[in-house]
């Protein structure tokens, strides 16, 4: 998980070379400056003017396709990868320097929800990831419905970097129970460690439906002679815990986490008919 913004910035600066650190200072200052501009303001300096069209071209190519007149912070957001990727790693747990730089730029620029959606929709994989990581850090916060559309979009992908970023503190606080449970299952399916999920203990606690889904998944794996992800037991134990203030729920069933895997020599035991899984 990302550390609070101040320590995120400090940690990043310590890892950047002098030139990249200067860029970060400029990027954050210009992002904060852009934040206070209104739509009626002219584009800020630093964005190249429209180029003249190539000679001898015909309609419709006589229009120009120059470097876009984007706010400075958006250009910095795009360039962060090239500038920060080589930052020295001080520990394997440190936030990715490119993620950190982009989250800091987004926080400083405070884009509106529409801009945030556009950045995500037309972003590279890494840019999308940064938007997802920034969701809980933005001030003012994004409109929840639109922000959740981005989270749910990421959860539909098979890109584990996006899935993990989508299930951060914003999803823990806002994602509905059905989508969140499917997020947990998606992590187990795709190999994202459940440690990546923000608020796992809180949200899973006493969630009988999640427990059922996990048990069904464990059953499906063992029936196929496959191993059950190690993380599943942890989530299942949490889901069987009573939520605070609730006691005596059926989730305290003494049933073992999942049946033992079949031996290699014996066929899988017959299984009773089960409802079809959700598509």
């Amino acid at each position: 998980m990302l550390t609070p913004l101040a320590s995120l910035r400090t940690g990043l600066e310590l890892r950047l070379a002098a030139e990249a650190r200067d860029w970060l200072h400029r990027a954050l200052a210009e992002a904060a400056d852009d934040r206070h501009r209104t739509d009626a303001d002219p584009p800020p300096a630093g964005v190249r003017p429209t180029a003249s069209p190539p000679s001898g071209t015909r309609t419709p190519a006589t229009r120009t396709h120059s470097v876009p007149r984007l706010p400075r912070w958006e250009l910095h957001f795009a360039r962060a990868g090239r500038i920060c990727r080589g930052a020295a790693a001080d520990s394997t747990d440190a936030p990715d320097p490119v993620d950190a730089a982009r989250v800091l730029i987004l926080h400083a620029a405070a884009p509106g929800t529409r801009e945030l959606t556009r950045l995500y929709r037309h972003g590279t994989g890494d840019e999308r990831r940064a938007v997802l990581l920034a969701l809980p850090q933005l001030d003012p916060p994004p409109e929840p419905a639109a922000a959740l559309e981005l989270v749910e979009d990421a959860l539909r992908t098979n890109d584990t970097r996006l899935i993990a970023a989508a299930l951060g503190p914003y999803a823990a606080a806002h994602l509905d129970a059905h989508q969140w449970r499917h997020g947990v299952l998606k992590c187990l399916f795709t190999g994202v460690p459940l440690a990546a999920l923000a608020g796992l203990a809180h949200r899973a606690s006493g969630d009988e439906e999640l427990a059922r889904m996990l048990e069904d998944y464990a059953h499906e794996r063992t029936a196929a002679g496959r191993s059950v992800p190690e993380d599943l037991d942890r989530a299942l134990r949490l889901a069987r815990l009573a939520a605070p203030g609730e006691t005596g729920k059926s989730s305290h069933s003494p049933r073992p986490p999942h049946p033992p895997p079949p031996s290699r020599s014996a066929p899988a035991p017959p299984t009773p008919p089960r409802p079809s899984p959700e598509p």
């Binding site: 990868g81 090239r82 990727r85 394997t92 990715d96 990831r129 098979n158 890109d159 584990t160 970097r161 899935i163 993990a164 970023a165 187990l188 399916f189 795709t190 190999g191 994202v192 460690p193 440690a195 990546a196 499906e220």
Partner: peptide
């Protein structure tokens, strides 16, 4: 814009939080 530093398949980074292997699909 070239970035040529990609870890080999199976390297520790591939098992890292954000580099798991969803291409194996896991039944999806």
């Amino acid at each position: 814009h070239l970035h040529l530093d990609v870890p080999p398949p199976g390297a520790r980074e591939q098992q890292h939080l954000f580099q798991g292997n969803s291409i194996l699909r896991g039944g999806e």
